[in-house]
Design a binder for these strands. Structure first.
Lengths: 329, 329
DNA sequence: TTGTATGCGTTATCAA
DNA sequence: TTGATAACGCATACAA
């Protein structure tokens, strides 16, 4: 592997000049710069970022620590984030915590050790600890969920209001016994979606305690959904707090031979590609996932550029996409 | 940020001893080791991997360069890969090329500059260039598709045979005019799936030229699928070369008011979660995606441990999962 | 068993 | 404008 001194030797200049030439400093003779360029390409020289970063005390790497790569909501965030980061010359390290605090802790540590320039994460829960990152001054942006202490830069969606909208929509369509499968306690979006659902039913004077908690990951919501369906006073509609839960809910519905829309109203958070393909197509509360990623990226870049900025907080809205699964027929 | 010399000073020993103690070398007095540990935790010391890696000339990072984070096939690979890499103490950098050769080139460069310990990639096409990695001796494992020169470690699926199986299945179920939407020319899996389809139809003495090429990404296959459906002699069955194409095919079917199974047989490669949820459930050629990732990880670790190993090549099989979309009714 | 001293490849400082 | 040199933080060869 060619080093800077190999290039220097070949070009007949000092390493300092090579460094300057390759980094496009203006203070270098054009002819020398050309010679350096030639030597570099001839040798197939690639600067060693390890050494460069050690010297510069910074890296051009951003860490994106998300809860679940198999959840389309998060991969959409990743795309938005990546698109912006790319154009700013940063590369993105995608880390998957699996909604697991141990894995999250490990990745935060990796981010710290690798001295990444910034971190975006969707905190896995109330015990998420970013103290180490903060002490080092690594910029952090929370997405989807706030950090436990609620401070710092963040890009969130008004989940409570969105859940309220979803429940209200079902009420408007004539459903009266509405159930909800939400995520684990302590995860902000799970708690807020539950709260919004409860708000709406309370306002309508209906009972709002027909809900279950489930993992936010695939597989965990089937059993809770079945329990709801088997209630002595079974629901006539169901809200799923994300698309992974929705998969299980639909599975449970199939097992009980219940057809969405006709037999039971269904609304889910998130708008996965398959939502419009199933029969009947699924009514959803679509979150602006791509935008969350893109906004978080810009926020992070701003923060990197100026640490003294006041903490920024963006609250986005989810939008109701009406399809047939919530249409009483 | 505390450094090794801070710890050394606090523990009253030399930096060498700190290094040895923290890296668990046996040649260090237990009492001193304890003092070092104490000092390290008191100072909140985190070793600087930049410096460590520069010194060691290696990193504990593996790069996984995949074609599309939004394709469940690739995220499943990522999970398999990550699970194995984790247990071996490596962290995984996930890079998304978007089936784009420019992005791929950039990420290969990043991997090179960051001196990652190894790379797994799904080559974007015939112009994929890993020369730079090879020159440096960075271990590489190709997944899903071989490298252009076909050499080196690889984990593939027998696509041609799988496509043959899929077409044969449709023939066995009585379909006679079978069409195929495959990926771009030059992408091995796309070409092989087409070839396998053609093999089967030729063997049956049927015409095998009712096919179209499309992007492997969402959105690109709708138009080609519509063209097939509007053929003067329209197909009575359709094979999609991956699940992203399948999404578009189903969309096209809906536009032409064709119901899978009843009006037209459908089989797709890959088994996304939504396949069993749609109505009718989709017959698929399931690829062992998680295993591909896990096997590639082990192969890469073996290669890192011993560069002189003979190149390994694993060929896995896809399996037919019969559901209702290919059942003539 | 411990400490001293050196070098990994780069960039920044300072003189020339 | 260029070059010599120090320093980034760590791990190791070698000496003690």
């Amino acid at each position: 592997m060619a080093t800077i001194s190999d290039v220097a030797a070949r070009a007949g200049v000092s390493t300092a000049t090579v460094s300057r030439a390759l980094n496009g400093k203006s203070t270098v003779d054009p002819e020398l710069a050309a010679r350096v360029q030639a030597a570099a390409t001839e040798l197939g020289y690639h600067p060693n970022s390890l050494a460069r970063n050690l010297r510069r005390q910074e890296t051009a790497v951003l860490a994106l620590i998300i809860a679940d790569v198999e959840n389309p909501f998060f991969t959409a965030i990743a795309r938005g984030f990546e698109d912006i980061a790319q154009t700013a010359g940063y590369s993105v390290v995608l880390c998957n915590t699996d909604e697991n605090e141990e894995k999250e802790r490990r990745y935060i540590n990796v981010a710290l050790q690798e001295r990444v320039a910034g971190v975006v994460l969707s905190p896995s829960g109330p015990s998420t600890d970013v103290k180490s990152l903060r002490e080092r001054g690594t910029p952090i942006v929370a997405v989807d969920r706030p950090l436990p202490d609620g401070t710092g830069d963040q890009v969130l969606v008004d989940s409570r209001r969105a859940a309220h909208t979803a429940a209200k929509h079902l009420l408007d369509n004539g459903y009266r016994r509405i159930a909800c499968v939400t995520g684990p306690p302590g995860i902000r979006t799970a708690d807020e979606r539950l709260a919004g659902y409860q708000d709406a039913l309370r306002e309508a004077g209906l009972s709002n305690d027909l809900f279950r908690r489930a993992e936010y990951r695939a597989g965990g919501a089937r059993q809770p959904a079945l329990e709801l369906l088997d209630d002595p006073r079974p629901p006539d509609a169901l809200i799923a707090a994300n698309s992974m839960i929705a998969l299980d809910v639909l599975q449970a519905l199939a097992e009980r031979k219940l057809r969405p829309g006709r037999d039971i109203g269904v609304v889910t958070f998130d708008d996965p590609t398959w939502a419009k393909l199933i029969d009947p197509p699924l009514t959803v509360m679509a979150q602006p996932a791509y935008d969350i990623g893109a906004i978080a990226a810009r926020m992070l870049l701003d923060r990197i550029a100026d640490t003294s900025l006041a903490p920024a907080s963006r609250m986005l809205e989810a939008s109701l996409v009406q399809r047939a699964s919530s249409r009483r027929t």
